[in-house]
């Protein structure tokens, strides 16, 4: 009898252990566990993802200078990473159509050209429009064209194409328009 009683106690203990394990596991699974990690990386640092998990990347929020990448992992864990977008990122996203800059190619304010430069890139007017008129010795044929007024009484000023050269040269951050190249071992004008 005592042996049978010992076996019964052992069975009860085992059953209690199994029940407790099942309850713990259920609580662990059912508990909504969300881990949020936020990492801010300043441009132009490139963020490298080292995780080996399969995930899908969706661009959820787009502001003029910030792109929020939401990385959804297969587990309940969600990692949100925020970084300041580089110009290259923005240029790629514009070309891929992820940022809506309009489809009409035009210099008019509110259309593609100014949407890219003024809205997406966030360049203020006086970044490009530098003076009311060109200097006397500025070599530009269309000096005879009166500058278009942005608003009544307010003239945005002329644009020195040297501003464009900064980004639109060879190996620049933007679409290459000018073959000028300033790299190691070269000085200004060597690319010409």
């Amino acid at each position: 009898m005592s042996e049978a009683g010992g076996v019964g106690a052992w069975k009860i203990a085992t059953a209690v252990f199994v029940i407790l394990t099942i309850i713990s596991l259920g609580l662990y699974i059912l508990h909504p566990r969300t881990v949020t990690k936020t990492q801010v990386v300043t441009s132009p640092v490139t963020t490298t993802y080292t995780t080996t998990k399969t995930f899908t990347t969706t661009y959820t929020t787009i502001s003029p200078t910030t792109v929020t990448k939401e990385k959804t992992v297969t587990s309940v864990e969600t990692v949100t990473q925020t970084k300041t977008a580089s110009l290259a990122d923005l240029a790629r996203m514009i070309r891929e159509g992820q940022i809506d800059v309009g489809t009409e190619y035009s210099l008019e304010f509110g259309k593609r050209y100014h949407n890219i430069h003024a809205i997406v890139l966030g360049l203020s007017c006086n970044t490009c429009h530098q003076a009311k008129t060109y200097p006397a010795d500025y070599l530009y044929i269309r000096k005879y064209v009166a500058e278009k007024m942005a608003e009544e009484g307010e003239i945005p000023g002329v644009v020195d194409r040297g501003v464009c050269l900064g980004c639109h040269r060879s190996n620049g951050v933007a679409h290459e328009l000018y073959k000028a190249y300033y790299g190691p071992g070269l000085t200004s004008g060597a690319g010409g």
Partner: peptide, 10 residues
């Protein structure tokens, strides 16, 4: 579209 107008440095 005038993109050429904007691009030409001359």
């Amino acid at each position: 579209c005038k993109y050429c107008v904007a691009a030409c440095p001359y």
